[in-house]
């Protein structure tokens, strides 16, 4: 993120920051949401109990993804991580299936 003033004003920088910002906000929220859904379906307890740890942990997953979006070595890697996690949690949630 450090750089000369010219680099900061350049469009490359702006695209970099914007891409990371979207990944770190909307992307992080989507990952947290999919995590909550997957965990609630996966946990081997009655659904009313499963939603608790699923939701509580989702609020930790979100900020973690936000940090990743800005610490990753480039905006492409940031987005790759977000999409990978989202796909993983979506797959788990779909495979676990809705409870009876």
């Amino acid at each position: 993120m450090a750089g000369t003033a010219r680099a900061r004003a350049g469009w490359r920088y702006r695209v970099n920051v914007t891409a990371r910002a979207v990944a770190g906000t909307i992307g992080a929220y989507a990952v947290a949401a999919l995590f909550a859904a997957a965990m609630a379906r996966l946990l081997p307890m009655p659904r009313v109990e499963a939603i608790m740890p699923a939701t509580l942990l989702a609020f930790l997953v979100g900020p973690a993804v936000t940090l990743w979006a800005f610490l990753a070595r480039g905006p492409w890697r940031a987005w790759a991580g977000v999409i990978l996690l989202a796909a993983l949690f979506a797959a788990i949630g779909w495979a676990a299936g809705a409870p009876a």
Partner: peptide, 12 residues
Amino acid sequence: ASLNMPWAISAT
């Protein structure tokens, strides 16, 4: 959470 992270509920 019931408003901003309802996905565990909607998934189950």
